[in-house]
Design a protein around this nucleic acid. Structure first.
Lengths: 126, 126
DNA sequence: CATACATGTAAGAAAATATCACATCATTTA
DNA sequence: TAAATGATGTGATATTTTCTTACATGTATG
């Protein structure tokens, strides 16, 4: 359902609403943004406007903090998630080159002999 | 899904957001409220706060107006819907009286003979 | 103890919203 | 046709919300 995704990413909530929904102070919300953990949009008047996804993210940050993870740690977690997502997108987007195909076939033969492939990232197999 | 219903009825949107979502001016939105067609909540500072259901209602009003129905007509439509809803709630809420039971049983026997019940509103059958 | 981290708080400016009053323009009615 | 009505625009002014910036605070950590 693509429409639902769109609704969840629509920036429609002012900070006052988000404060209540997430039970956070304005100070906390702005600080998490300052630290690069949250990226609410801005309207024409420079007011922060949040989506439901933004609220989810804030709740997540709150949970991590409550679990004793500091901001630097949370930043790292999100950086790694970002990395993984980027890799997956790349895997999906890049068409197989002739070299990829040769490499895959080569690995196949190696596997037949009981050897393991030395290649880390998997290619889409279809 | 009761949770979804709750989300849709949460008053989280300021009038500025609603203006964009429904493509209405603040004047129009306030006027429809003044006419009793819309009932947004107010926050502690007297600012109108709208739910998704409120936005749906505004879009509906907009459609009715575009269809040539005036405010009085729309008001009547909603009054009738309210009536129907109230009746249905009453139907659901009222426990069966002994008399209801007798009446139903009586109808049953009539139906066996091929006759139709003369009673309009249905009672819950379980 | 000195530092860093997460948050509180205060000041002042800018933006958003409130109400109220009057204007406008089209349609209906007397 | 003049007058009334209905839906919306516009302007003034007050209040609320949010913004940025700066400094304060308490707790944990080296």
């Amino acid at each position: 359902m693509k429409e639902k995704e769109l609704r969840r990413s629509l920036a429609v909530l002012p900070i006052g609403t988000v404060m209540k929904l997430a039970n956070l102070t304005a100070r906390q919300i702005r600080y998490y943004e300052e630290q690069g953990l949250s990226h609410p949009e801005r309207n024409a008047g420079n007011r922060r406007m949040f989506s439901l996804n933004d609220v989810d993210r804030l709740l997540e940050i709150k949970d991590y903090l409550a679990a004793g993870i500091n901001i630097a740690g949370i930043k790292e977690i999100y950086a790694q998630q970002q990395q993984k997502a980027k890799q997956q997108a790349a895997d999906l987007a890049r068409p197989l080159t002739d070299n990829d195909v040769r490499q895959i076939l080569h690995d196949e033969f190696l596997n037949i002999g009981g050897f393991k492939s030395k290649h880390g990232p998997e290619f889409p197999t279809h």
